[in-house]
Amino acid sequence: MSEEKSLAGKTAVVTGAGRGVGRSIALYFARAGADLAICSRTLAELEAVKAEVEAEGVRCIIAAVDLANQEATQRFCADVMTEFKSIDVLVNNAGAELENGKIEESDPQNWWKTVEINVRGPYMVTRFLLEGLSEGAKIINVSSGMGKRAGNSNSAYHVSKAAMNMLTDALANELWPRRIDVNNLIPGPVATSMLNKDKPGDRRTTPEEVLERFADALPPGFPEWERLKHPDEVGELALYMATRPVGGPTGQSFSLARRPL
């Protein structure tokens, strides 16, 4: 990791930062010198990340927030603006996959809550922080290749990520006059505990343990040409995106996902 403080004097908000990809992004930003506001649904995980972030000599505020709840989301954003006054980088990372079966067998409540968290959540966080984004700020929406194609199951996630891609394009157009760049980050499969869905009690939850478990083959449903990434690879790409010069790429997708030749 670079020791360069490329985000010194900047402030960043990262949602879903309690573990996995969000945690890695938060730590990369902290090591680059950014003060942070982070949220997720689990306070204990946030407190652990806060300690790691503050060990880098930067400020960090935390809040346990369900991004499907408008009141809680708006309160978090108001607290962020009270603390930091302006925001230079916003990473909409929080997401959920609560209904991954076929539509005919799906639970309507879980199907819709997946869409709420994955689309309405980023919309609300962006909406409530928009006035406080600095000129030249960056918005990074963590999306998925699943938003670019339909599958034969898990429709809520496919639909929500397709909507996220369109939200990115709309924001890029709207915020062009303020020189705010809005881009998608597509990680592809990442070594997080979410891959242990077939074994809910599996204690192998660190990226290294998950990488070891799937060293020979990815879980069913992933293309054979894909590679499992460490969350830090996503953190590194997010930092690259956050430090592009003002007027850089906008309305684009930066991807770690592989594609067949």
Rank of each mutant, 00 (worst) to 15 (best):
R227G: 07
L239S: 05
W176R: 15
G235E: 08
V182A: 02
A242H: 12
L228T: 00
Y157H: 09
R213C: 08
D169L: 15
W176N: 12
H230I: 14
F214C: 03
D181G: 08
G248T: 02
F214P: 00
K161A: 04
Y157F: 14
L237K: 08
R244S: 03
M241G: 09
G147K: 05
R203T: 11
L175G: 12
F222S: 04
A238M: 09
T168Y: 02
P220E: 00
R227F: 05
T192R: 01
E226L: 00
H230Y: 05
T206S: 15
L167S: 02
V234G: 01
A162I: 02
K197R: 14
H158L: 05
H158S: 07
N165R: 14
L218F: 04
A215V: 14
V234H: 10
L218E: 09
T205Y: 08
H158D: 12
N165M: 13
G188D: 07
M146P: 02
N152A: 12
D169K: 15
N196A: 12
A170F: 05
G188H: 09
P177G: 01
P245E: 02
L237F: 04
P200S: 08
L167R: 06
V210S: 11
A215W: 11
S160A: 14
P187A: 05
N154E: 00
E208H: 10
F222L: 13
S144Y: 09
P207I: 04
R203V: 08
V234E: 04
A215F: 11
G151Q: 10
A163D: 11
G235I: 10
K161G: 00
G221T: 07
V210P: 06
A150W: 05
T250E: 11
E174T: 05
A215C: 05
Y157K: 03
T206E: 06
N173L: 01
N196G: 10
K148N: 03
G201K: 15
K148L: 13
G151R: 09
K197E: 07
S253V: 05
P177H: 01
I186F: 02
V234I: 14
A217M: 06
A150P: 02
L218R: 00
K197P: 02
R179K: 14
K148E: 12
T205M: 08
P189M: 07
